[in-house]
């Protein structure tokens, strides 16, 4: 199982014509790898995520995700592809306040048939999938499940977001500064859980952060650094 999860070839992207934003001559990430991408704010992290999600198209070069050149997909195809294959965790406030825990977790399966079927295949039912995923992350008391999302601590919220990213076995998990709102103790515990779960569910993990101290948790580190030609590059 060494199919490349992500293959980037001579990618360049600029928001404005005159200023180059991001340049990646070559980057390959194998399936199941857990990669730490370090970059300070303004270093093109969001641009990279949007490129990987197919929300924006590269000016030149190719991005292959799971063997598919997403630059060639129509925006609707890219939307489907992202819904099926990508799980995303943000910095904080990941959850919809008006849904309960289980509804928040199952949300991706409402927009992706593939993930719905996977979840049912693995856990029997969608509800069950959410409950078991939450339990794996230590959120298993019934009292907790009935609580409003708003009453959860930030750490708990991030774990719910992780369960949501994992449901239906997407191939690629992108975590965008998921621990920046957590204290050190919770941070380490969360990253541990994240790595563990990605391994267990055979998902490739892309962990983006500015915090260098976190790189000890990862087997591979890439750095978004200033490019002499302008913008940033890997």
């Amino acid at each position: 199982m060494s199919q490349a999860a992500i293959e980037i070839e001579s990618l360049s992207f600029a928001w404005k014509k005159e200023a180059l934003t991001l340049q990646i001559p070559q980057l390959a990430i194998q399936s199941g790898e857990r990669v730490f991408i370090k970059g300070r704010s303004g270093s093109g992290k969001s641009t990279l995520l949007n490129l990987l999600g197919g929300m924006i198209k590269p000016d030149s070069g190719t991005i292959n995700i799971l063997g598919k050149n997403i630059g060639h997909l129509s925006s609707s195809q890219a939307d489907h592809f992202r819904a099926d294959r990508l799980g995303v965790i943000f910095q904080q406030f990941n959850l919809l306040p008006y849904l309960n825990l289980v509804e928040n977790v199952t949300l991706p399966c409402r927009f992706s048939r593939r993930r719905l079927l996977k979840a049912k295949e693995n856990y029997g039912s969608l509800e069950q999938a959410a409950i078991e995923l939450l339990a794996e992350l230590g959120l298993d008391s019934t009292e907790l499940l009935n609580r409003s999302v708003r009453e959860l601590s930030t750490g708990q919220q991030q774990r719910v977001a992780l369960a949501r990213a994992l449901i239906g076995q997407p191939n690629l998990i992108i975590a965008d500064e998921p621990t920046s709102a957590l204290d050190t103790e919770h941070r380490d515990r969360f990253i541990e859980l994240l790595s563990q779960q990605c391994e267990r569910h055979h998902s490739t993990l892309l962990f983006v952060s500015h915090d260098e101290s976190l790189k000890k948790h990862f087997s591979r580190v890439e750095v978004l650094q200033p490019n002499p030609a302008g913008g940033f590059c890997i």
Binding site: H80, A83, F90, N94, R115
Partner: peptide, 15 residues
């Protein structure tokens, strides 16, 4: 934020 969350879980702009 609500819209961005929905987008990240797979909602399309049409949704």
């Amino acid at each position: 934020r609500e819209m961005a969350i929905l987008r990240s879980v797979g909602a399309r702009p049409m949704h």
